[in-house]
Amino acid sequence: MFYVYILASARNGTLYIGVTNNVAKRLALHRQGRGSEFVKQYSVHRLVHVELYSRAEEAIQREKQLKKWYRVWKIRLIERDNPEWRDLSDGLV
Rank of each mutant, 00 (worst) to 15 (best):
L7M: 06
L15C: 03
K40Y: 05
G35V: 09
A8C: 04
K25W: 02
L47R: 13
P83K: 00
D87Y: 11
Y70K: 13
V39C: 14
L88D: 02
N12T: 06
Y42K: 06
R80F: 11
V19F: 02
A56D: 14
Y42A: 05
R80S: 14
Y53M: 02
G18C: 10
S9K: 04
D90N: 13
P83R: 01
Y16W: 02
K64V: 11
V23K: 06
E51H: 08
E63G: 10
R71Q: 11
Y70C: 12
V44M: 11
A56S: 11
E51R: 14
G35L: 08
Y53N: 00
N22I: 01
L15Y: 14
Q65E: 09
S43P: 06
L47Y: 07
Y42Q: 06
T14D: 13
R86S: 06
T14G: 00
K64N: 11
S36Y: 01
L92V: 11
H49V: 02
R55M: 07
A59M: 05
V44T: 14
M1D: 11
N22P: 02
V50H: 02
E63R: 09
G33Y: 09
N22C: 05
W85F: 04
Q61H: 09
L66Q: 04
L29W: 09
E58A: 15
E58M: 11
N22V: 00
L66D: 07
G35S: 07
K74V: 14
L29Y: 08
N22M: 04
R62H: 07
Y42H: 12
V48C: 06
I78S: 10
Y53T: 01
R26C: 06
T20S: 12
L29M: 14
V48D: 07
K68P: 03
W85C: 03
S89E: 10
L88H: 03
Q32T: 05
F38L: 11
G35R: 13
I60G: 03
L47S: 09
V50C: 08
W69I: 02
Q32K: 09
E79W: 01
R46E: 14
K68H: 06
A10P: 03
Q41D: 15
L66M: 06
K74D: 05
E37D: 15
A59L: 07
V93G: 15
G33S: 05
R31Y: 03
V48N: 10
G18F: 10
Y5W: 10
L7P: 01
G35M: 08
Y3K: 05
Y70L: 14
F2R: 07
N22S: 14
R86P: 00
W85N: 09
R80W: 09
N22D: 15
Y53I: 03
V48Q: 07
Q65M: 09
S54P: 00
H49K: 13
L47I: 03
R71F: 10
V44I: 14
H45G: 13
F38Q: 08
R62P: 04
K68F: 00
H49F: 15
G18H: 08
I17M: 04
D81A: 13
Y16K: 10
K74H: 08
Y70R: 12
N22Y: 02
N21L: 00
S9P: 07
E57W: 06
A59Y: 02
S89C: 07
L52D: 08
E57F: 08
Q65L: 12
N12M: 13
G33I: 04
V19Q: 07
R62Q: 11
L88I: 03
E84T: 14
L52S: 15
I17W: 01
L88N: 04
M1P: 09
